[in-house]
Amino acid sequence: MRKWNSTGGKIFDCLNYVILILFAVCTVLPFIYIIAGSFATDAELRSRAFFIIPKTISMDAYEYIFSNGSLVRSLGVSVYVTIIGTLVNMFFTMTMAYPLSRRDLRGRNKILGLVIFSMLFGGGMIPTYMVVKGLGLLDTYWALMIPGAISAFNLIIVKNFFQELPKELEDAARIDGCNELGVLWRIYLPLSKPILATFSLFYAVGHWNDFTAALLYINSPEKWPLQVILRQVVALSQNVVAAGDRLDPNFVEPPAQTVKMATIAVGTVPILLVYPFLQKYFTKGVLLGSVKS
């Protein structure tokens, strides 16, 4: 690692630590408050503007959420859609980004133009729905994965990363008899671990947080992902909002405010746990080692 021993360097390092730690505290405190709030009572949430440890610990909000029979199943749906969906995303994105990173490919600019144009002009909700319907994807998990199989934004950035990889390796592989698939598989992908990790994370978080696609395309409640269920849990607990439309003879009022916070905790913590596993790939360069070997 690089070391800086001058006074200026030390001051900089100190400042750097202080600023970053302050920033980290600012970003995480509200989240801690949400977690703490999810274990508190509604009364405490109303009376204290901010706290990290609740005075009375209450599990009511979690009991209410987990009493929902669909929650565990929907968690399974979300995990499934996130994993398979991310694989689909990565497959489509990588296979398309690689040829497009080759400057000598005929028609490359036209395809890229097509991709960029599609970022700026969209047909809107109804036409897209018609396509999904026409393909027979309605009410299948594919409807949650295929219509967003490639993010043009991610594709272009991956393409750009591929372009930056040293060409010597590729040539060496070709001399060894690899075809294009081999070059992608043996050279590009292993060298792009940070990129694979980054975009897997982007796609995975996208799938995890998505509820609009499910609301539009999935009719069977047993196929709804977690986020849809959590939204409904919140909506149901806020009786004031739904009062005009929902007439539930058996309505038992849940702690509305803490339920809101607990749904955030339930919806966020599983995907947050993914990050540390992927993180090692962003922080370490892989290029050096592989170039040498």
Binding site: F91, F92, T93, T95, M96, Y98, P99, L100, R102, L105, R106, I111, L114, V115, S118, F121, G122, G123, G124, I126, P127, T128, M130, V131, L135, I146, P147, A149, I150, A152, L155, N179, E180, L181, L184
Partner: peptide, 28 residues
């Protein structure tokens, strides 16, 4: 570049199907 074209095909198909097929929506 047959391999490259083969690789680009699924993605291209995706864009045509899900981005360009619905693009008539712009005309509304």
């Amino acid at each position: 570049d047959k391999w490259l074209y083969l690789l680009v095909a699924p993605g291209l198909l995706y864009f045509l199907l899900f981005k360009y097929l619905p693009m008539w929506g712009v005309l509304i």
